[in-house]
């Protein structure tokens, strides 16, 4: 019987072409009622896919139960040497403790679809095999059905497959990142947007700024309030390392490190303005909620004061 199914599928696929032999098909149908029944089932199934696919969101994501779960690699890495990398690094650590896949409402009634994460990251699979891992406490709006225009608030790692003739655009604050198939990480919160490329290259565009191409092994930091873009080398292997439960930095402003610790660790982390201006190099591992902040304090020679809602970094011995 499965031979009949395969023949039915062959006829069905051929039927959309002008060179289909309709007379031979008629003879095949007449040969057995099973032929007719199986062809009809194939054609109806395909029509159902087309009809329902046009009306609802079948392809983008995914009730989590049936999709692969990204498992945590918490604690898999220990501290690495500080200052081992040059330039200012960005590998945003922190464990996506257990990422789950994005859930999108079943009925795709509008062209735009927003996914928001809580304390867990989520992976969104696009129809073309590309994937986007949305960081915890982040939000992403897919402005069209196939994920070619995306607006991001928070963090996300993009693994975009190259499709001829296609360009994808990610809008992060005032910065537009264009891509034709590569891997890169974006962290967008407040006025500062960070981009790091691990494979291929992306284009960066913002108002009143010349377009910039960022190649693999390069990172960019865009300050929206100053309309200033800074680029520099990064460790390509560390890009998006938060997905594996760690954040690696080289000479990164402490305020941005704290921002990441809060996002990925799930606990707020504040400090005085004087401390915000300091820089940090090293790798933080995501463990329990306090761990990255504790490690950061220890490495920086600071004191961590725990609060009910979040932690505070203080100069040792000073009141804060």
């Amino acid at each position: 019987m499965s031979r009949i199914l395969d023949e039915a599928i062959t006829w069905h696929l051929a039927s959309e072409h002008d060179d289909m032999d309709w007379d031979a098909f008629t003879l095949w149908l007449e040969a057995s009622p099973d032929h007719r029944a199986e062809y009809d089932a194939v054609a109806r199934g395909d029509a159902m896919l087309k009809r329902t696919g046009e009306r609802t969101n079948l392809w983008m994501a995914n009730p989590q139960a049936t999709l692969p779960i990204i498992t945590s690699s918490q604690g898999s890495k220990r501290w690495t040497r500080i200052g081992q990398r040059f330039g200012w690094g960005m590998g945003w650590a922190v464990a996506a403790a257990m990422a789950v896949l994005a859930y999108l409402p079943g009925h795709w009634t509008q062209s735009a679809q927003t996914i928001t994460t809580g304390s867990l990251s989520r992976e969104v699979a696009l129809e073309d095999g590309s994937t986007i891992t949305l960081a915890p406490h982040s939000s992403m709006t897919l402005e069209d059905r196939v994920g070619r225009r995306i607006r991001l608030d928070g963090g996300a790692y993009f693994a975009i497959r190259h499709v001829a003739g296609r360009q994808m655009e990610v809008q992060a604050g005032a910065l537009t990142i264009s891509d034709i198939g590569t891997r890169f990480d974006v962290q967008s919160q407040g006025a500062i947007i960070r981009v790091a490329v691990s494979e291929g290259q992306v284009g960066l565009r913002a108002r009143a700024m010349a377009d910039v191409t960022l190649a693999h092994g390069q990172g960019a930091l865009f300050d929206t309030s100053a309309l200033q873009l800074t680029t520099g080398p990064i460790a390509a292997d560390d890009v998006g390392s938060w997905r594996q439960g760690q954040l690696s930095y080289t000479d990164m402003q402490l305020s941005l490190v704290a921002q990441d610790v809060a996002r990925y660790g799930g606990r707020g982390l504040v400090m005085s303005d004087a401390l915000k201006a300091r820089h940090f190099s090293g790798t933080l591992v995501l463990g329990n909620g306090h761990r990255p902040a504790e490690d950061l304090a220890r490495l920086m020679g600071l004191e961590l004061v725990r609060g009910a809602d979040g932690d505070r970094l203080c100069q040792s011995g000073a009141s804060c």
């Binding site: 019987m1 499965s2 009949i4 199914l5 599928i9 099973d34 029944a37 199986e38 089932a41 194939v42 109806r44 199934g45 395909d46 159902m48 896919l49």
Partner: peptide, 16 residues
Amino acid sequence: LRKILGEAELLPPSPE
């Protein structure tokens, strides 16, 4: 597709 839709009784059972 045909197999899954047959299992879901949205199409007659598949020959497989």
